[in-house]
């Protein structure tokens, strides 16, 4: 069984063939089918044969921009969704990626299905095709068509996505998707909910959540805009604090990472997706994004020329 979106996948492969033939790119970073139903994995195509394995469908969740640093000395092509393109803007702004060194194929993204959510209502192995629309997610299965509410099928971040079409690209895969109006704070729901609690209740909440943290640093490794080669926050493997997972060390790591991501986090929430113990990290980074908006009127990933808010100062602040 494979999830197919034949038309766009074929167009993508065709485009990548052209890129290779014209010598625009040496490698192309995209997706290929994963080992399990509804799963894809990042795929680095280096030849025409590799390019024929590329896919694009509504299960392509990974933010591929976090792998770009591995190809710094090559001419790279990359497939980006709306959220990924914002990460790319930040990487270019922070001088981690050269704009002229990367060829961007933008994929207007209707929303990505969460395989764990889908599995609650449908056996993923029986699904042969997925079609995501604004108001519904249509699944073609061996047993016939099934229609799901987006809330039961998509990642939470996709439900409140205000920018499904990349705004930084060399070429677009398919037609741009119209932006549907999203209430101003809808994207920060989880953070706002926590803000309603008292300080003591919030501490109790995070104490319980962060107690699960194993300091595996997966959240940091997967983050596209958390790119330092040596992290000031990560404890060495043999550090007793890491072994004991002392509360103060865990708090310090997460709080400081939130600070470092303020004015940088673009809200792809890959951190939350990869967290092996399901800490609601998106709430933390929603707060970081919200504060950068409220305090400095700054939106990460929107403008390559904008100066990061903590690298400058204004008239009053």
């Amino acid at each position: 069984m494979t999830v197919v979106n034949d038309q766009l996948t074929l167009i993508l492969r065709e485009k990548v063939h052209t890129l290779f033939a014209e010598g625009v790119a040496d490698v192309f970073i995209g997706y290929r089918h994963g080992g399990k139903p509804l799963r894809v994995q990042p795929h680095v195509a280096r030849s025409a044969a590799d390019a024929d394995q590329l896919v694009w469908n509504p299960t392509c969740i990974n933010n591929l921009t976090s792998t770009l640093h591995k190809f710094a000395d090559m001419r790279v092509g990359i497939l980006v969704k709306g959220c990924d393109s914002r990460a790319l803007v930040e990487l270019i702004k922070l001088r981690q990626v050269r704009r002229d060194g990367v060829y961007i194929i933008g994929a207007p993204c209707p929303g990505i299905v969460d395989h764990e959510l889908i599995a609650r209502s449908v056996d993923p192995a029986t699904i042969t095709d997925i079609f995501v629309e604004e108001a519904q997610v249509m699944l073609t299965t061996d047993a016939g068509e099934i229609t799901l509410d987006p809330a039961d099928a998509l990642y939470a971040k996709c439900l409140t996505c205000a920018q499904p079409t990349p705004d930084l690209y060399d070429e677009l895969l398919g037609d741009p998707i119209a932006v549907h109006p999203i209430p101003l704070d809808a994207r920060f729901n989880a953070a706002i909910e926590l803000e309603q609690l008292s300080v003591a209740e919030r501490f109790a909440f995070w104490d319980e959540q962060l107690n699960k943290c194993t300091l595996c640093y997966a959240c940091q490794a997967v983050c596209p805009v958390c790119f330092c080669t040596a992290c000031a926050l990560a404890l060495p493997r043999n550090d007793p604090k890491r072994k004991n997972r002392d509360r103060e060390s865990v708090f310090s790591f997460h709080l400081m990472r939130a600070y470092h991501m303020t004015g940088r986090c673009i809200g792809c929430y890959e951190c939350e997706r990869v967290c092996p113990v399901d800490i609601p990290l998106s709430a933390i980074f929603q707060k970081a994004e919200k504060e950068s908006r409220d305090l400095f009127g700054y939106k990460a990933g929107s403008d390559v020329a904008a100066v990061p808010p903590l690298s400058t100062f204004g008239d009053k602040t």
């Binding site: 803000e195 209740e201 995070w206 997460h254 600070y259 303020t262 707060k287 903590l310 100062f313 602040t317």
Partner: peptide, 23 residues
Amino acid sequence: TGNYYTQRRFAVMRQLLDFFGID
């Protein structure tokens, strides 16, 4: 200009401390 940067940093830091339940 050093203290202008400080001012911005700690405006953020106070919010984040508060968010994690540290007064």
